[in-house]
């Protein structure tokens, strides 16, 4: 096991004393096999207990340790030191308010996530004794990749349109709307369209594609959004150009 002296340049912000952020340098000896999160933990344990950051699972499942690493939104637990020969710049995810140091406030995302109703909506609830709503493997595969989302919000930090127009519902929430729309057990698409097909929904997206590039679990929000734009366009034609609103 090889050890290496890792140089970190870490964004600091203390809401009690600071009006803006600054960068603090740390040098800490790490094993080459470690990830950036390990380095941050070693800094906190041995050099500076005041450094704040969120983490939990250390295995790219919980989605808590998202941060900008050399300008790229990444999970710190999923970013190996061996791929970073020079100084590593660590900042809180952009496009989100900074609570303290590397901790950001995800409130806006959580509110938007709720608005797209990311749960199964049934118009006809079948009695429990009739058993579960069954699904074929084909129907499962239709939405499965979108169900992998861990709500880490890296895609929001990558999306310039979210940064420029804060009312945009954004990649992960819309991809999850698509996940339920595509689910054969769900009957709630009409309700979700009231959010998805608005100006704040898919129509703020200009298909930069950054969301899909940074997703640590290979969800493709850009694909979900383009599919929803096409479907929403056909909806519009049905509602406005066909007799009886296509109903």
């Amino acid at each position: 096991m090889k050890e290496r002296l890792i140089r970190l340049e870490v964004f600091r912000y203390n809401p009690d004393t600071d009006t803006e952020g600054h960068y603090q340098h740390y040098e800490v000896s790490c094993l080459e096999e470690w990830v950036v999160l390990d380095a941050l933990n070693k800094v906190k344990e041995t050099l500076d207990p005041t450094l704040n950051f969120r983490w939990s699972c250390h295995m790219a499942v919980c989605g808590s340790c998202g941060m900008m690493i050399n300008g790229e939104p990444r999970l710190a637990c999923h970013t190996f030191l061996r791929n970073y020969p020079g100084t590593i710049r660590v900042e809180p995810l952009v496009h989100f308010p900074v609570e303290r140091d590397l901790v950001t406030a995800p409130d806006d995302f959580m509110e938007k996530l709720k608005r797209v109703k990311p749960w199964i909506i049934r118009k006809d609830k079948q009695p429990i004794e009739q058993g579960e709503y069954r699904q074929t493997p084909k129907e499962l595969l239709r939405f499965r990749q979108y169900a992998m989302c861990i709500n880490c919000t890296l895609c929001y930090a990558a999306c310039p349109e979210y940064g420029l127009t804060r009312h945009f519902i954004g990649p992960a929430a819309l991809a999850l709307a698509h996940r339920y729309n595509q689910d054969s057990r769900d009957q709630g698409r009409d309700e979700r369209q009231e959010v998805v097909a608005t100006k704040e929904g898919v129509w703020e997206c200009t298909f930069v594609g950054a969301c899909s590039e940074v997703c640590p679990v290979h969800v493709d929000p850009a694909s979900a959004l383009q599919q929803m734009k096409i479907a929403s366009s056909f909806d519009w034609i049905k509602e406005h150009l066909l007799p009886g609103g296509g109903k």
Partner: peptide, 28 residues
């Protein structure tokens, strides 16, 4: 009380922050 730091995105120069944004702008 919370006093979160808001960092504004530079509206006219944001695309210099990452090569993928420059690729996007050249497509547009």
């Amino acid at each position: 009380s919370r006093k979160p730091l808001i960092r504004e995105v530079p509206p006219t120069t944001w695309y210099f922050r990452h090569p993928r944004y420059l690729r996007y702008m050249s497509r547009e």
